[in-house]
């Protein structure tokens, strides 16, 4: 709560400086509109921005969900079958080295102009942090716990299920936090590269038409969405993975 209050205070302070700069230098609105004008546009164009938010929100959620699912599956597979880890870890590393911007146009060609290519961009961006965090967690189980399971003659599966997985969940949680922070970026990048809907499309379009105020208004909505999503996920993770 304190963090939120601090954030709001800093935010308002920055807005004041921004407004002061715009007023003092009499900047034209196609170079830099003041925050008052941005909020005004946000109010007037609420319907449009709201409408364009829907696809972005859906892409983010789908990408996040599928990315977490696939990331967990990959981590499981790698932890259980050594050959898979041998083959998959270099691919994972390479996938992280490729700039998303470079392959996003390809994804549009392969998967089309619609939802699929944006979801895929998002998945590619957050697959690695999830897999990496979870796999790491599955590998760093406290030796004492494993010894304990061994003296109890627990099977490999029981040890995995009752000890290694729960012990790795806090690691997975930090992976999910990072993924949550990137997921909206993935969706917007996907939209930038090729789409006819979404906040990314709206921002690019507004920029092209010198409607900088609309661009900032859309950006504001995007940031608000990203932050809310992050805080909600963070809260849920703390509740569910309480250790």
């Amino acid at each position: 709560m304190k963090l939120l209050l601090r954030g709001i205070i800093v935010f308002i302070f920055l807005l004041l400086i921004w407004q002061a700069i715009v007023s003092f230098f009499r900047l034209p609105s196609y170079i830099l509109p003041g925050p008052l004008q941005v909020f005004n546009t946000l109010y007037i164009q609420a319907d449009l921005i709201g409408h364009e938010s829907i696809p972005t929100v859906i892409e983010t959620f789908l990408g996040l969900l599928l990315g977490i699912l696939l990331g967990c599956l990959a981590a499981f597979g790698m932890a259980f079958f050594k050959p898979l880890a041998w083959g998959l870890s270099p691919i994972l590393l390479v996938s992280q080295a490729i700039p998303t911007f470079a392959i996003a146009p390809l994804l549009v060609i392969w998967l089309g102009y619609g939802l699929a290519s944006k979801v895929m961009t998002t998945i590619i961006m957050l697959f690695f942090p999830i897999t990496n965090a979870f796999y790491d967690g599955l590998h760093r189980t406290e030796q004492g716990w494993l010894d304990l399971a061994k003296t109890m003659n627990a099977s490999r599966f029981k040890t995995f299920w009752h000890i290694r997985i729960p012990a790795a969940l806090p690691h997975l949680a930090s992976g999910i936090r990072i993924a949550t922070a990137i997921a909206p970026i993935g969706a917007v990048i996907g939209e930038w590269v090729g789409s006819s809907r979404g906040l990314g499309f709206l921002m690019l379009n507004a920029n092209g038409h010198m409607q900088i105020d609309l661009m900032f208004a859309a950006l504001f909505v995007l940031i608000t969405f990203s932050l809310s999503l992050y805080f909600i996920v963070d809260y849920l993770l703390k509740k569910i993975i309480y250790w």
């Binding site: 004492g144 399971a149 109890m152 099977s155 009752h162 000890i163 729960p166 309480y242």
Partner: peptide
Amino acid sequence: DLLLPWLSAMDNALLIAELN
């Protein structure tokens, strides 16, 4: 003590029932 942080005291004591 090697107690598992996600299990209650009783469940920790009964760990053998989970593992074997």
